[in-house]
């Protein structure tokens, strides 16, 4: 079980506990607003975009090749951008904090 904190655009914090799933699914299952996940978790719509807290960047790691392709087309992309469907929750990510953008593209 890992604790993940989502900070939405209005500054609200949503803390969820999850395991054996992706950060995207953890958000959807717990009704965290701001994550659309239109494609259902297949890295092909980029509507589960999050900004990973800089402290956690190393633990989370860089985007994969296909994810990079999708992220690269987003004008709101930053260095700490990831698609949350591509981040698997493990014990190593217990305490992870991500920011949710105002809009998903």
């Amino acid at each position: 079980m890992a604790k993940v904190t989502f900070i939405t655009h209005d500054g609200a914090e949503h803390v969820v506990e999850a395991e054996f799933t992706s950060v995207m699914n953890a958000a959807i299952d717990n009704l965290v607003p701001g994550i659309d996940a239109d494609c259902g978790g297949e890295c092909s719509c980029a509507t589960c975009h999050v900004y990973v807290d800089p402290q956690w960047m190393e633990a989370v790691g860089p985007p994969g090749e296909r994810e990079e392709e999708m992220l690269d087309l987003n004008p709101e992309r930053e260095a700490n951008s990831r698609l949350s469907c591509q981040i698997a929750i493990t014990d190593a990510l217990d305490g992870l904090t991500v920011r949710v953008p105002e809009f998903q593209m």
Partner: peptide, 9 residues
């Protein structure tokens, strides 16, 4: 990428 921002947030 040159034009995507027009439809951006």
């Amino acid at each position: 990428k040159e034009v995507a921002a027009v439809a951006g947030p």
